[in-house]
């Protein structure tokens, strides 16, 4: 049958079989992919103003850890996640807020009073009082809440927090 433009009944059946099989595969396959990756499609990053407390709670010149809890609905469960920031009051009204999440692999950094540095317990990264990288693997300074994301109203420090 070489060169013939007519396809034989046999070839037609083969083609039809493959088409039907492919249709079933696609009809179940494509929704399945959406089904499996669904959590990745959810819009994340809820944001809110988080009050950290009145100014006088924070000793001048010494970073204070403030933790807060955010609950989030994951599937059919509510999960409470704890977050922490260091509040550093440099002078009466000058406040710096730094996230305690290491920019390397998200371990929580601690303030070391003696060495006057933040130390990450996972890979021994060190950060300065302002969050700049002093040593170790982190690619960038600790995240800061400043400008639009920081406000002091009626003596209460608040940050604009976005869940990541």
């Amino acid at each position: 049958m070489a060169g013939s433009h007519h396809i034989s009944r046999r070839d037609f059946i083969k083609l039809a079989t493959l088409t039907v099989g492919g249709a079933i595969g696609a009809a179940i396959g494509v929704p399945s992919i959406f089904y499996l990756v669904d959590p990745a499609l959810e819009a994340g990053g809820k944001d809110a103003w988080i009050p950290l407390g009145p100014l006088e709670n924070f000793e001048i010149g010494k970073p204070t850890l403030v933790t807060f809890v955010r609950t989030k609905v994951n599937g059919w469960e509510k999960t409470s996640n704890s977050y922490g920031v260091f509040v550093l009051r440099k002078s009466e009204e000058d406040v710096t807020v730094i996230s305690n999440r290491c920019t390397h692999l998200s371990c929580r950094v601690n303030w070391n009073e003696e060495k006057q540095t933040y130390i990450c317990p996972c890979h021994d990264a060190t950060f300065s009082l302002d969050g700049e990288v002093l040593g170790g693997p982190p690619p960038r300074p600790l995240d800061r809440y400043e400008g639009e994301a920081l406000k002091i109203e009626e003596g209460v420090v608040s940050i604009f927090f976005t869940e990541g």
Binding site: R10, I13, K14, A16, T17, V20, G21, A23, I24, A27, I28
Partner: peptide
């Protein structure tokens, strides 16, 4: 293949 499989698939497709 392909005669029976064709029939089988048509029925399975209907069920699907």
């Amino acid at each position: 293949w392909p005669d029976s499989i064709y029939k089988d698939l048509v029925v399975s497709f209907g069920i699907f």
